[in-house]
Amino acid sequence: MTATETERPAADTGTPVLSLRGIEKSFGAVHVLRGVDLDIYSGKVTALVGDNGAGKSTLIKGIAGIHGFDAGDYSFEGQPVTVHSPRDANALGIEVVYQDLALCDNLDVVHNMFLGREMLKARLLDESTMEQRARTTLDGLSVRTLQSVRTPVAALSGGQRQTVAIARAVLWNSKVVILDEPTAALGVAQTEQVLALVRRLADHGLGVLLISHNLNDVFEVADEIAVLYLGTMVAQVEAGEVNNSQVVELITTGQATGRSAGTSKGEGA
């Protein structure tokens, strides 16, 4: 049917920058991911939706190397890769913005953006280069909400913090950015800002995976929608091909009436 929804994406959508096949993951007796397939394309926002506990965070933690997958194929830019640690993922160009932001409140914007990957000159911190690069990155993303990059993160609003976390993810010529519910705690205006930022990432040519519970957000920015239901990927379709209620149905039942698409993979549930 559609080009992107099954194991063999058709040529016209290009090859995915990141692709997973048959991913399995258990925590002890809890079988969380059951044969999950997922494709992320450069220049596109892929939304990953699913109910609480469907396994979304588990899936992206595996992609990021925080914990390994039990089985399945993980390929990046067409090459099979093994990712054992966050560093491996970073080296490939994969960056994650976590649900709980993972920023240090006591450090300023620049320090947070370069955390763990500080730039050094003569083995010492190169503050001015880091500050310049932070500025350039924020300007490149048309971020206008940060007065000073030397403000401690504790003093920023939720949207500003999210902006810092996202800017940090694109600082490193990353190819894939994964965002876990970036708008969950934000008000209307800040949500709009962050979504615009997410869109801009894709327009800059990055592959974006966006996890969200808010279908309005999803339909606003996503090019593709992937639905995870009880650890099974029941659909990955182009956003234009489904409507809101069909996605809701997929999320809650793992199947959608009125479209033949979901059935091909719905048997896992």
């Binding site: 966050p86 976590y98 920023l103």
Partner: peptide
């Protein structure tokens, strides 16, 4: 204040989980 190690000390004190995810 001038070495990466020092920065990491502040990071761990501020948010150890964030520091861990940053590869520290």
């Amino acid at each position: 204040t001038r070495t990466a190690w020092g920065r990491h000390v502040y990071a761990v004190g501020g948010n150890a989980e964030a520091a861990r995810r940053a590869g520290i």
